[in-house]
């Protein structure tokens, strides 16, 4: 095939007439050269894709997949931080210890509540903001960039600032509350208050990012959908409810999944809010990520830390399955409604 193609289109040699009788040896040489070239060509097209994806998969295998699996293996051993090379078989001991560990259950519950406190308002606000930004307006790019700036602020920097703003005695937030006649709140020691405070840091950093994602999805909604809705006399609010939201459903599910994954790993905010890995003096805002860090690097128990990591992984899989089921159910129910109309 390939040789045929090259034969069919000989290189135009400066307008010279084709030589009538090329001598045999040169022809044979040319043929061999061509065959070699087509072999090389075929090898090249066959192998090069693998060559292009190889670096990614090599690094991913070495630093992503292998550590994840090996964490599961380490969870079945007694591993101490002082001597990480020495692994002593422990079976499921690390996991059974977790089941009866009140700190583990506390961390799990905190991860859950902070996750909800941080995710739900964040995504709701992002949706509303995206709707506003979708209007025709001046300074579109200004608003978008400004709302994304918190995303450029690191967890550490953001948490350190908020920790001061939330100070009990001299913090600006309590000062402002006092102005409107509300008693000062102990943002660091009160369980709910501390969890809300930590959630606001997450919300502050991520609302803009999610806003942009929703905005992109809104701009992809075909305009004639709105046109026909407007012709039917639907108010802007009705349009948002019946055109925008349904079209955004896959995007919303996507952001919920991503935010949930982020929430299960929450670590920097609770670590730096008061600067200790115990997550408050009564562990009132210790998350799973933080507990894993404390277990491994403060209590020197890497085996148990691995078990915590794997229970986070299992948790993620459970959540993933739940979302999958929900999305299946949603598509089925809407599909049904559409066909019944």
């Amino acid at each position: 095939m390939t040789t045929d193609r090259t034969n069919a289109a000989p290189p135009a040699e400066g307008g010279a007439a084709p030589r009538p009788a090329p001598d045999a040896t040169a022809d044979e040489k040319e043929l061999r050269r061509r065959r070699r070239r087509s072999w090389r060509y075929r090898m090249d097209t066959k192998a090069s894709p693998y060559g292009f994806v190889a670096p990614f998969f090599l690094f991913f295998g070495a630093f992503g997949l292998f550590p994840l699996l090996f964490t599961g293996w380490a969870a079945l051993h007694r591993v101490r931080l002082q001597n990480p090379g020495e692994m002593e078989w422990a079976g499921l001991h690390n996991f059974t210890r977790l089941l009866s560990d009140e700190f583990f259950w506390n961390a799990l519950a905190n991860t859950f509540t902070i996750g909800i406190l941080a995710t739900v308002p964040q995504l709701a606000m992002a949706l509303g903001l995206a709707h506003l930004l979708n209007y025709k307006m001046r300074g579109q790019n200004f608003f978008r960039v400004v709302m994304l700036t918190p995303y450029a602020t690191s967890v550490a920097a953001a948490t350190l600032v908020f920790a001061i703003l939330y100070g009990r005695d001299y913090g600006m937030i309590n000062w402002a509350l006092d102005l409107v006649g509300i008693n000062p709140v102990d943002w660091k020691n009160n369980t709910w208050a501390s969890q809300i405070a930590i959630s606001t840091i997450v919300i502050w950093r991520w609302t803009g990012y999610n806003t942009l994602i929703y905005l992109a999805a809104m701009q992809a909604v075909p305009r004639d959908l709105y046109e026909s809705a407007a012709l039917d006399g639907a108010s802007p609010w009705k349009q948002f409810l019946h055109v925008t939201l349904p079209s955004l459903r896959p995007t919303i599910l996507f952001t919920v999944v991503v935010s949930t994954i982020g929430a299960t790993q929450l670590f920097g905010e609770p670590l730096l809010f008061a600067g200790s890995p115990s997550g408050g003096n009564q562990n009132q805002y210790q998350t799973l990520g933080l507990y894993m860090y404390e277990m491994g690097w403060m209590n020197f128990n890497l085996g148990r830390a691995s078990a915590i990591a794997w229970s986070m992984f299992l948790l993620l899989i459970l959540i993933g399955l739940a979302y999958w089921a929900v999305s299946k159910w949603i598509t089925r129910s809407t599909g049904g409604r559409r066909s019944s109309r």
Binding site: F56, G64, P67, F70, T71, A74, V79, S306, L316, G320
Partner: peptide
């Protein structure tokens, strides 16, 4: 190709934090 691409997408969902213990053991070694 398809399986590898699925693997890439699946990877995006797995938090890298879950692998820190072995990574730490490796760099200690």
């Amino acid at each position: 190709k398809n399986i590898l691409m699925l693997l890439v997408i699946g990877t995006m969902m797995v938090p890298p934090q879950l692998g820190v213990v072995p990574l730490f053991m490796a760099i200690a070694e």
